[in-house]
Structure formats: C-alpha cells, structure tokens
Design a binder for these strands. Sequence first.
DNA 1: CCATCAGCTTTTTTT
DNA 2: AAGCTGATGG
Length: 713
Amino acid sequence: MASVIPMETLTESQKEAIFHKDGPLLVLAGPGSGKTRVITCRIAALIESGVRPYHICAITFTNKAAEEMRNRVAVFVPAGGVHISTFHSLCVSILRRYGEAAQIQSNFSIFDVKDQQRCMKEAIKDCQVNVTNFTPARMLDFISRLKNDLECPREFEARAAGFFEKNAARIYAKYQQILKQNNALDFDDLLVRTAFLLRDFPAVREELSARFRYLLVDEYQDTNHAQYQIAKGIALAHRNICVTGDPDQSIYRWRGADIENILVFEKDWPQAKVVKLEENFRSTPNILEKADQLIAQNMKRKAKKLIPTKEKGLDVCIEICEDESAEAHWVAEQAEALIDEGKDSNQIAVFYRVNSMSRAIEEAFVQHQLPYQVVRGVEFYARKEIRDLLSYLKVMVNSQDDVAFLRAIGTHPRGIGKTSLERLEQFARIHGLSLLEAALRAEQVETVNRPTRGRIVEFAKMVQQFRDDMEGDVSPLMERVFDASGLAKVLGADADAMDNISELFNSAAEYDQRSEEPNLMDYLQMIALYSDSDAYNAEAGRVSLMTLHAAKGLEFDHVFIIGLEDGLLPHERSSIGADDLEEERRLFFVGMTRARQTLKIGYARHRVIRGQFIRSTPSQFLYEIGFEGESDAFDSGWGEPNDFDNFASSLVSKKKPGQLYAVNELVEHSKFGLGRVKEYLDLGEDSIVVIRFNSGKTKSLMVKYAKLNSLGG
DNA sequence: CCATCAGCTTTTTTT
DNA sequence: AAGCTGATGG
C-alpha cells in the first residue's frame, strides 16, 4: 500500500516530527509552521506503522479544532477510530465511565459560570463572612486557582493563614459541598476529578494507558497543572507522549495555564526528542518582520526564529481614527474594498481585545451592508429563553440539580413565590432531599400555604412525568417539554425568542443525526462545553468578528486588529505585573500572525468605555512595531493625551441669558466635590442642573439651593 | 405573589 | 451601557 503522506511537500524537520514514533516528543512550532498538518500526518504515520487507531488519543484546544482534526484524519482512516477531543470532553468521558470509583454519578450536571456564581453566592452567604471582601467573582477566581493546582479544600485549609485565606478555605469547602449536593461539577472540577481519579486509582490509570497508547497534546503551552497531570498520568506507563506548542502563543496564563509545562518538558521526560518548526508558510515577510519585532520585546522567552517562505507583500499599516465609530467605518470601507476587488469574505477577519468592541464594528457593517459573523458561541446558550428551556432538561437528567430546578420553576409565574420556595428549600435541607423530591412531597411542608403546596406538587409531577420518558432522540423530547411546560405559551408572542428556540431545536436535531446513541444526558454534557470558537464557520461567506483569544489557531488572508490603545491592549486589568504585560504582547502577536497577506491595525483617539467618553493614548505595542507617533497634522487640538479636562472644557457651551451654569462647565459642590455640568434645565427660579461628579455619581440639583462654586472651563 | 423601577456596581480574555 | 438588587405598589 502506498503511503498517504505527501512526503515531497514536507520539510526535513516536519518529517522528523511525523516519523519519530516512540518516546516523548516536543514539537516547538511557531505560527504558520504547518503544525496542524504535522499532527495529522503523524497520526497517519502511526497508523501506517501498525498502531491501531483505537490506541491513539489527540487532544486539541477547542471542540472546533477537534472536529477539524477528525475530518482531516478521516481522509486516512475511517472516522471514529482515533479519539480526538479537548481535555474537558475527554474528562467528561472518563468521569462518566470511571467516576463511580470516586463517587461521581454519570449523570452529573456541568455548572457554567452563571451556575457557579449562584452557588458561590450561596456559599458566601452560608459562611456569614463580610460580604465586601468576599465577592463571588473574586472567590471563584481564587478557588479556580486552587483547583488548577489540584489543591482540595482540606489541603488548603491546613495551610491557610490569615483572615482572608482562613475564610476562603471555609467558602471553598462550602462551595464544593453545594456542588456535590447538586451532583454537579464545574469546569475546573472536570479536570481536577479526572486528575485525582488517575492518581488514586491505579486500575483506572492502567486501563487508560492501555487504551491511549499514543498521546498527542496540541497547544501544550496553554495547559494548566491539572491537564499536565492528566497527560502525565495517561502517558507515564508507555512514555509515548507528543506535545506541540509555542511558548510565544501562550495566552491563558490568567486562567491557570502554566507556560512552565512546555518549558520543562525536556526535564520531565528525559531523552525527549525536540523538533523545532521555525519556517512560516503563512504570512508575508512584511507581517513576520513586525510580529518578530514585537515578540522580541518579551524578556521571558526562548528566542525563536520566524523564517519567512512567502513573497514580500504589503506593509503592515496603522490607521489613526478619531473614535470607535470612525475606526469601525474605516474597517468597513477597507473590507468593502477588498470584497469589491473580488476577495473572499471568508478570508477577512476583525480582531479585538474585548467582546463589547464588536458593537461599533457591527453597526458599521450593517450600514455598509456587509455580511459578517460574530464568533461568540456561548452567547447563544446564555440567552434567557434557551437557559429556561434547558433548565427543565437538566433537572430531568439530574434530579439533584437544584439550580436547574429553581430556574425551571421560575421561568414563568405559577403562583409560587420566593418565600414558598425558601420554605421548600428549608424542608429539603432538613430531610436531606433534593428540591424536586421535596416538591413531590410538598403537601407535607406545613410552612407553605395550602394552595401553593398544590401548585408545587403539580409542577413536580409534571417534571416527574417528563423524566419517565426521556430516552432516545433529544429534539422531539425537547419540543415536547417546550409545549408541555407552558414555555411555548409564554414565549409564543416573542418572535426573537421563538427564533432562538427553533435554532436550539435544530441544534438538537443535528446532534440526534450525528450521534450514534443520542441521549439527553450526553447532549447536555456536550453543549455545556460549547465554546465561542465553536461558532466559527469558515464557509459562512461572511467577514469574521472575534476576540483575539478566539482567533487562536485560525488564519485569514486579510486581518484587522482594532483598539491598539493603552489600557485596552494591553488591557488595564492585566498590566499590573510584567508577566501580564508579556502575555498581552503575546496576545497581539497571536493576532498579527493570523494574517496571510495584509494586516491593518486601528487606533482610536477617543473611545466610549462603559458609557464614558475616554481620551486614549497609543498602545506601547504600536511603538514596538515601529509606529512613530502622531504628526502635528493629525493633532486634533484637544490637548495632551489623557487630559480629559482640557478636552471637555473645549466643549463648554455658551450660556443663555439668565443661565447660571453652562453645559460642561467645571463646578465645585461643598459636599460632593468637583464635577462637570451635564445638563441645564432652564426653569427660571426653579432651574435644575445635572452634574456628574468626580466620584462617578450624577446628581440633579436645584440651582437656588445647591451651593455651587463655578470654576469656569 | 408579581411586575416595575430607581439606583447601584461593574474584571477582559474562556473551558 | 447593562445587569442585578431591593423597594414599592397593585
């Protein structure tokens, strides 16, 4: 049989990476180095050398990447043989199959960020700590770090020192208890539990090692400690571990990714073979030169070359715009010009640092009548009506999921209020029941009004009835629940909501089609892991709009990156430490190196952020790629950068006769301090002045009472 | 019990 | 700008 691997088109180092069959292998692959192709060919080469597809496990960073990899591999071997998935999906499969050993029921719920917040609020409340110091967001972040380091509540409690840590330990324990009570795992738990399963149950580890005899991990620079341990656990017995990645593209440190994992791979696995892929087959030398110039600024890195192979192209350009809307129109015009030239919309992308920046771009694209897609998959599943319908399905699969129960019972008014539910919860607590079980016995809950008890039982019986019939295909089941639950009636008039609901039906129908053994539990666990990048459609015939993070792993002929402003990229929230700044730089590097032919970068002098008009300065990254500052010709005459007051004072309006204060005038209040006049309602003696104070608060004051001291411009 | 509204806070990135 | 919370009134 002739080899299916296209030998003649591969470089020597690519071949080395592909044909090194046994033992640890580290592939340091720069952007555009044909890494994906190398992995695919490597899988093919393993199979050609006699390894059964069944014994190969490839781990990708996103579900989308997994799907793509499956399609590529399917060219070589019948689909379904090789296990290709993300770490999280792999963990779900492992926990479903082996979790029982660690007291995990297979029908566990996966709690997303919103569910986590709900549980965390409850945990904080139960622990009765000072609420201002222990916000849910902060605690979730803190605990997530502990989990990423595989530190369980008991271990942390033992070493916790000081007021904050001691209370954090209590909250952590409580939070875990709540999750357990709900038969739920959060995203971190999926990894943690799997890592512990491998650590504590040698039989499980052996079985998995025997199954996955060749392990490949892509984007290894973004693995966290838990993922590292899982990979190690599986590969320890046979040492057939191949990891690929690029330390310069590590952008998830904030989420626990440990760049050390890839840096110490050689120490971890003695005799590891290391292959460097430094040639770049993607971008023009013009783009690579700038990208290299940028990333060279990072101190904590192993120097790596970017060797261009393409013809010289167009220069990277930087566009200075007045505000975000001007920037958006510039992008739209440029994109329109490309499309008019006959370029493919699929090959055009716009990247930005934060999701909220898509709005201005969307508005401009609508005005220019350009087709676009915002790559934001999780948004769909976060919609109210979608969550509402899914909550019924969740409680059906996992009757202990009280979070889902509460959501389902509250989707629309049924004459069951907050107080009744609180009493039901009390009853459930005392008797060690889930809310659904308690609701079925609501007649015994004497603290609740008799008519309300009846309504609770009615609801519980309905859910119980759904539970009796939940085998097989998901989509018909979903439609049945939608009608019978009363949701259909409530949402009937809302066209937008109904559109989304039918899209959900479609997605379920698609799942039923694809899946060998469709069932509700599997479906719910799968969609819980759905991510933003999964929504990317490479053949949509639209310009793609996405965050820089979502752009990872993709490539486009024409790329726009917008918002190169200080505080936005690098983002102010992550430029605290030097490490954070380096990560922001890598993020920009990732964005730049997505471009094949043209790269255009936008900078806006002003931008509205959280409803406030902000004067901005160019990002330091712009200077690092050769930007020389604005020439005088471009100067807007609005004063020095960051001098909001100068800018604002230039807008001070003229006073009408009798008007005491002008709009935008600077004033001082004896109690509230300095502020600026936002509005002046001329009502003669009763005139009202609206002032936004420096404290951030906006007040409406009667001119005749407010003791204001005018400071002019 | 439930709808509504004023007022307050808001971590940006994501599995 | 947007989402959440607590207060108010029906």
